[in-house]
Amino acid sequence: MKFSIGGSLKLAFRPWVEGLENIPAEGPAILASNHLSFSDSFFLPAVLDRKVTFIAKAEYFTSPGVKGKLTAAFFKGVGQLPVDRSGARGAGEAAIKSGIDVIERGELFGIYPEGTRSPDGRLYRGKPGGLARVALATGAPVIPVAMIDTEKIQPPGKVVPKLMRPGIRIGKPLDFSRYHGMDGDRFILRSVTDEVMYEIMKLSGQEYVDIYATAAKRQIADAEKAAAKSEKAEKAEQAGKAAPVESTESTEKAGPAAADTDK
């Protein structure tokens, strides 16, 4: 199924690729990519001869009904691995364990250090938990990858993709074997993650923002709420100003009548 999906994607979108020679013909490696679109996990495996395993939330594999079964089959076909996200640290620990298992099988493990899709096309600070811990626990090389223009094909919230050519740039492998076994040192984890993000930035040409993408999404959501609240208040104020005001003439006519009534 992987080959049929990959062939269909290549035929329909004709993605261009640079740096394919940096993917090893065999043996384990970690592919660390920027994350612009839901389709990133499909385009990268489509251009490679080897299987790439990404992680995906378990709900994609357990939804009931015909649609749920089709979704599960699709994700399995493109190399997605279900991860149970229950518990406070469930997602992170499950992802790390899954990544280590993939590497120990001698396969390619794909991961997005930003942790979530970019909300505006910029490159955000990498999270040091997953990528660096898998790399230091296994000693596997890290290959930086840059997805180009995939957010234009399928922006967040859009179901039907736009037919255009995305790009993929694959950098040279990064060797962190000097830190092997130091996955408990948070300073080393931060250093490794930042080095990988710098290489991704050079490949992608994105503007780098030194905050987490999750924080940026909260800021954007808060700004949108504030703007909506301000617009609502402005409309209410305008409606108040537009309300009819009783004329002086009608008030004068009503005056004597009101006086008579009082008598």
Rank of each mutant, 00 (worst) to 15 (best):
M1I: 02
F3C: 07
F3I: 13
F3W: 10
I5P: 08
G7P: 06
K10E: 04
A12T: 15
P15I: 06
G19M: 10
G19Q: 05
G19E: 03
L20V: 07
E21W: 08
E21H: 09
N22F: 12
P24S: 10
E26M: 03
E26V: 01
E26K: 12
E26N: 06
A29V: 07
A29Y: 11
A32G: 06
H35A: 10
L36P: 03
F38E: 13
S41G: 15
F43M: 11
L44N: 00
D49I: 00
V52G: 05
F54D: 01
I55D: 01
A56E: 13
K57T: 03
E59F: 04
T62F: 05
P64Q: 03
G65Q: 09
G65T: 10
K69T: 12
K69W: 15
T71W: 02
A72K: 08
A73H: 10
G79V: 04
Q80R: 00
L81M: 11
L81C: 08
L81Y: 10
R85W: 12
S86M: 06
G87C: 05
G92E: 05
G92N: 09
A94M: 03
A94V: 12
I96K: 02
I100T: 10
D101P: 04
E104A: 05
G106H: 00
G110E: 02
I111P: 09
I111M: 01
Y112N: 04
P113C: 00
E114C: 02
G115Y: 09
G115D: 08
G115K: 03
T116E: 08
R117L: 12
S118R: 07
P119S: 04
K127F: 15
L131G: 12
R133E: 11
V134F: 09
V134H: 14
A135H: 05
A137Q: 13
T138Y: 05
G139N: 07
E151I: 09
K152Y: 11
Q154P: 06
Q154H: 06
P155Y: 13
V159N: 12
V159P: 01
V159Y: 12
V160W: 14
L163G: 03
R165D: 09
P166L: 05
P166E: 05
R169L: 09
G171I: 02
K172H: 15
D175Y: 01
F176V: 05
G181Q: 11
M182W: 14
D183R: 15
D183F: 15
D185F: 07
S191I: 00
S191C: 10
V192I: 12
T193P: 11
D194G: 01
V196T: 13
M197V: 13
M197D: 04
M201D: 11
K202E: 13
K202I: 02
G205R: 04
Q206I: 06
E207G: 01
Y208R: 09
D210P: 08
I211W: 03
T214P: 01
A216T: 01
R218L: 14
Q219H: 09
I220H: 00
A223T: 00
E224F: 00
S230R: 14
E231D: 03
E231T: 01
E231C: 00
A233D: 05
A233K: 04
A233N: 05
K235R: 14
K235W: 05
A239F: 06
A239Q: 08
G240N: 10
K241T: 01
A243F: 10
E252F: 07
A254P: 01
P256Y: 02
A259C: 04
D260V: 10
T261R: 13
D262H: 08
